[in-house]
Design a binder for these strands. Sequence first.
DNA 1: GTCTATAGCTTGATAGAC
DNA 2: GTCTATCAAGCTATAGAC
Lengths: 201, 201
Amino acid sequence: MFSQHGFHGVTLREIAAGARVDTALLHYYFQHKQGLFDAVWARRVAVLNVERMVAMDNYARAHAGALTIEGALEAFLGPLTDPARHRDPGWRNFFALAALVSNSAVWGGEVMARFFDPVVRRLIDLIAQAIPLARREELFWSYHMLSGALMLTLSNNGRLDLLSNDLCHTSDIEQMAPRLVKFCAAGFRALVQPAELPGTC
Amino acid sequence: MFSQHGFHGVTLREIAAGARVDTALLHYYFQHKQGLFDAVWARRVAVLNVERMVAMDNYARAHAGALTIEGALEAFLGPLTDPARHRDPGWRNFFALAALVSNSAVWGGEVMARFFDPVVRRLIDLIAQAIPLARREELFWSYHMLSGALMLTLSNNGRLDLLSNDLCHTSDIEQMAPRLVKFCAAGFRALVQPAELPGTC
DNA sequence: GTCTATAGCTTGATAGAC
DNA sequence: GTCTATCAAGCTATAGAC
């Protein structure tokens, strides 16, 4: 419900009705509305962060010395683009919530940074190993672009379906995921490869 | 106010107080809360859409026969990344609102499509001319990535500042804009250039 | 056009029975 | 733990004086 209408767009009464309990019970367990929201958020973030960190560790170990941008991105994104996960309404809604939070001007940046910066820093370290001459600054700019494309994907807002007359579908994660990797890997290379250092990669 | 807290996160009382009028006056001019929101939205969208269409027309005329992805993107993005515009709080807030709307699961896609599809279709036509062998499908997927990166930029959520320890700033549009073009141009090329047609571009 | 006043609901939260 | 009942405050919207 939060993912569909935002924090203020849902009432505790609606949530309680959906859970078939009374609003008093929500207060019993979560104190206030914000407490409920935080619980929803934190529970799934914790699961994802472990999976993503493990995926990147495994990748780094298995391909030590021969890291690629594509490989690092696949490890980083894997738990977010797993088709099985996108068939689960609970996860799908959480992804949409993350997308909404991400583009929220006042607290979005702070919340995303607080919960996701460790995994993102790990990704950037992996890519820095894959491209040793990359300027750190450009890695951050590149990640920003990746993050935007990823969050719009997770929002599942249906825009692409309308724009393309149903040639492509926002929800088609099997089609989207490999293209996200390909698009962003090329983008990373374009940014980190300065004109001053021709032919570095 | 809508851009900071969302439609439901702001009350007509707060808006009226901010405008130093009474809530009754808001109803006199805009009927209901939704009417006010729509007016805020539509007014600036109209300005942007004209500018962007003109910019792309001018580019197409000036470079007929020698179109590039970078050139098309610059024309498409120019009115959104103009530093002067980003110094204006009214425009900055509108951009943040667009970013929030974009990642809203229920109506975001529909609204964005309704208001922006004409300019986006024009962009895609330009890029299709620049890369005649590109598959239409891949142009749409590519635009999706561009759109995500752009909207996160416009959200101005401050995440990049925290992630990079102030090495990069979300609000630094002069740094961001050329990188957005470079990153996405490379992404477009990577997606539209199929492995089956090596060396097309 | 702009205000005062207020209707009619809905909200988040709590007290207290069981 | 779960409910009923309810409060005080807030909400959008309107009626009507000026």
